Simulated assay, not measured.
Amino acid sequence: MIDHIGIRTADFDRAKAFYDKAMAPLGASLLMMVPPEHTDGVKVGGYGRDRPVYWLSEGAPASEPKHIAFTANTRDEVDAFYRAALEAGGRDNGAPGPRPHYHPDYYGAFVFDPDGNNVEAVFHRPE
């Protein structure tokens, strides 16, 4: 149902370094930077697997941090996302593991990004 989403970051280069590492285990990467002549010089980049779906833009973050969950293809990807995100400067908000209170096959990990957003990798099937 959601085609793409974007968030603002106070420090684009710091957020880019974080997401470059955190997204890699999920098979996602920075796929494009919007040319600055189309953004009034603001840095804007899109992450995804086959097309940009998660956009970062330079600017004051929203006053309330967001929660964003990224689909993982395996539990191992969830684990690798969590490790990579912590190594990239993220802060723990829930180690990888089952979350049966959501549903029996829910397996996720949660990390705060540099702007305080709660980012998650989640796998929804039995493994």
Rank of each mutant, 00 (worst) to 15 (best):
A72H: 00
N118R: 03
Y102E: 04
R125L: 15
F70R: 04
K21A: 15
Y47P: 09
G116E: 08
D115P: 09
E127L: 13
T74H: 05
P98K: 00
A109C: 07
F110E: 03
A85Y: 00
T39N: 11
K21T: 01
E120N: 05
D113C: 13
P100V: 03
V111N: 12
P104R: 04
D11R: 14
F12N: 08
A84F: 05
V44Q: 02
S57A: 14
K16S: 10
P114Y: 11
G6A: 14
D40S: 12
E58I: 07
A84Q: 11
P25S: 04
F112L: 15
V78F: 08
F123Y: 15
R91E: 14
A22K: 06
A84D: 04
R51A: 14
V78T: 07
A80E: 00
N118D: 15
V34I: 15
A22H: 11
T71S: 15
I7L: 11
P36A: 09
A85P: 10
E87A: 15
S29A: 15
P36Y: 12
R83T: 15
R14Y: 06
V78G: 02
E120D: 00
E120W: 01
G6W: 07
Y82W: 08
P52I: 03
P114S: 13
N73W: 02
D113W: 08
G90N: 01
N117I: 04
M1T: 03
N118E: 07
K16Q: 14
P61M: 07
A10P: 04
A95E: 12
I7R: 01
E58T: 01
Y107K: 03
G116H: 11
Y102D: 03
P126F: 05
P100E: 08
G89N: 12
